[in-house]
Write a protein that binds this DNA or RNA. Structure first.
Lengths: 193, 193
DNA sequence: GTCTATATAGCGATAGAC
DNA sequence: GTCTATCGCTATATAGAC
């Protein structure tokens, strides 16, 4: 990269299109089934040109993870503006509810990616775990602000409930199941402490 | 197959060794990353000979799913001998607790397989979903026996909690997290109705 | 910076001797 | 039934013209 300003500058640079295409395909097909050729085609970038931007396939996957982490931070940052911890937590569950259809199709975009990469046992595993940690830490802060000493455990219980529901919904291809569980979880948050 | 008795008769026939090797490898590495050559090597069967027993790779994966379903039915059948629904449900959670180390390493053997195959969108998806359905239906019967009209929803909540905990445990490589969640779930069962 | 053509490797699956 | 050798395909990655 000769010019770091133009590199990420254009609203639809090849670099950005590649990450976006990769992100969507990894979600739709899973990491292992997705090929560089498919990513190149969706991003409308010639196959050989991909390697100018990303030296290896793993580097591209890493860029997708970083993109997801950035998005997570943005969503959590926006939620931080809400006045009460419960409103923030319920706001976060709403983002999953809005994505119920995608969740039914391919699972949680974050959870399935983290799950798949955790078995790779390379550097990507740690990056993928970071996505989950960002959410867990944020949830923990909300529960702590509610005065709960068991905030870490509550965060795990909450995220596990969401991820488990997403897994069942996609396995059974049942969107309503997911929405029902999210509603139950929202009531659970309302009843806290 | 010329003789269906000897086919499944020996305690370690090639056919059995192939399914066992495939089952272990699919769990350790995931479906997509596991090759026929690896399965053949682990089962100590020459590569070309695999195709005498299973015409395609998918047929072998299907045999693994059937093996898992058979095991699930056996475990649930044994638990049915317990006197109370709560004892049965807690007995089932104990099987996950005993497998906590494997769960930390590669996730729930059933959940990760179902999750991975649900995106394949072929016949294997339905077979994989059946593993989950068997457990869900059994859980539902226990809750119904406890007099809960919301037995289906409770079954989903319970299995989702377990699967979500397994996912977080393997993503974060945290065995203690999984054990803590299972303990919490056991207390939740104790407090039912 | 961009793109075509291709090297290289590993996969599922098959042929055919034994 | 068993096993070796190999076909055909597709993947990642690279070479090199432009």
């Amino acid at each position: 990269m000769t010019d770091s300003l133009t590199a990420t500058g254009g609203p639809s640079s090849k670099r950005e299109r590649l990450v976006e295409g990769a992100r969507d395909l990894l979600f739709e097909q899973g990491v292992e089934r997705t090929t560089i050729a498919q990513i190149a085609e969706r991003a409308d970038v010639p196959l050989g040109n991909v390697y100018y931007y990303y030296k290896t396939r793993d580097e591209l996957v890493e860029a997708v993870i970083e993109s997801r982490i950035a998005r997570i931070r943005q969503v959590l940052g926006d939620l931080d503006r809400r006045t009460t911890p419960k409103a923030r937590l319920k706001g976060l569950t709403a983002t999953w509810d809005e994505a119920a259809r995608e969740v039914k199709e391919n699972g949680c975009p974050i959870g399935t990616l983290a799950c798949e990469l955790s078995r790779a046992h390379n550097e990507l595993s740690d990056q993928a775990a970071q996505m989950i940690r960002e959410i867990l830490d944020w949830m923990e802060r909300q529960f702590r602000e509610l005065g709960r000493r068991d905030a870490p455990a509550l965060a795990v219980t909450l995220l596990a409930a969401i991820q488990g529901a997403a897994q069942l919904a996609s396995t059974l291809q049942d969107e309503a199941l997911f929405r029902r569980e999210i509603r139950r979880i929202r009531r659970w948050i309302d009843g806290i402490s």
